Computed example of a mutant assay.
Amino acid sequence: MGTISAFESVTLDGVMQGPGRPDEDTRGGFRHGGWGVGHADEVTGRFAGSGMARTRALLFGHRTYDDLLRHWTSVAGPNPFTEALLNQRKYVATRDGGARLAYPNSIPLAGEATETVARLKTEIDGVITVIGSGELVRALHRAGLVDEYVLLIHPIVLGSGTRLFGDGDGDGDGGGDGGGGRADLVLEESVTSTTGVVVARYQVK
């Protein structure tokens, strides 16, 4: 039986939208893209690397898959992140039954995400890591399918943008749906980076 681990960069006020670059996700008029730049260090790199080492497969929403793979395959020069993304088995939740995926080792999960991912968990032994993919994570959270959250909590407050768990009735500035019901979490491990990022791994009770 597989376990779903959601790996997310968030601000102190829970915003997950566009951490990597200004044009990453401007939906809803979001103007703070790239807020995570400059906060990575050896501490966060080691934590991320250990997480990837125990990952059996990656899981994405269709939009995040296209954006992330397009970006990292266009970066000049070799880097380990691109190689890991391309070589790892990737599942892509999509509502498009005819979806064609542009990158190797990619498998579409066409249909209702909560149903296709629930089936996937029965087919894979080990950790299935979701990167970003906020809409997908919120849907899986509501369905009780997320087993673990790995959060890189940045010392930043933005005040607007799509939040990881939504705003109850909706995500406000960032679009999307609400985050769903309560989940009780158990802190399994945490570390603080040299740039003030708190990296915490929580198990869902």
Rank of each mutant, 00 (worst) to 15 (best):
E123M: 11
H141A: 14
L85Q: 02
D125T: 14
V37Q: 01
V15W: 05
G111H: 07
A200T: 05
G38N: 00
P80R: 12
E24D: 15
G18W: 02
Q17D: 04
W35H: 00
L120C: 08
K90D: 06
I107Q: 14
G132L: 11
F7I: 13
E8S: 10
V157Y: 05
V186M: 11
D66E: 15
D177Q: 13
I4K: 02
R54M: 10
E42H: 06
P78I: 03
L151A: 08
G111T: 05
G36F: 02
A200H: 06
G159M: 07
I156N: 01
G176F: 05
R182V: 11
S133P: 09
Q88P: 02
L120V: 09
G159W: 08
G134T: 15
D41I: 01
R63H: 13
A53V: 09
R46K: 09
M52I: 10
F81Q: 04
G180K: 11
N105V: 06
Q203Y: 04
V43H: 00
G51W: 06
L69D: 01
P19W: 03
R31M: 10
A93V: 15
V150N: 09
V198C: 06
D184H: 12
D125A: 14
G178E: 13
N79Q: 05
D66V: 13
E135D: 15
G33A: 05
L86V: 08
G28N: 07
S9K: 04
P78D: 14
T11Q: 03
R63V: 12
L140I: 08
S50P: 00
F60I: 09
S9N: 08
E112A: 11
D147V: 01
G20S: 14
G34P: 02
R201F: 00
I107W: 15
H39N: 04
S193N: 02
A6Y: 09
E148M: 05
R201L: 01
G168S: 15
K205T: 14
D125W: 10
G18R: 02
T94D: 15
P78C: 00
A143N: 04
E24T: 07
G97F: 15
G196N: 04
G28V: 10
D169C: 08
G2P: 12
G33Y: 10
R56E: 15
E42K: 03
I131T: 09
G166R: 14
L152Y: 14
V117C: 06
V186Y: 07
G51V: 05
R54T: 10
N79E: 03
S190Y: 08
L86C: 02
G51A: 12
L152Q: 08
L151S: 07
R70D: 12
S193P: 01
I131E: 03
S5M: 12
E8A: 13
F81P: 01
I4Y: 02
M52A: 15
D23M: 07
R201H: 08
D173Y: 09
L85C: 00
A102F: 05
G111C: 08
M52S: 14
V198S: 03
V186L: 13
T64P: 03
L109M: 13
V150A: 12
S9V: 07
A84N: 04
A40T: 04
D184C: 05
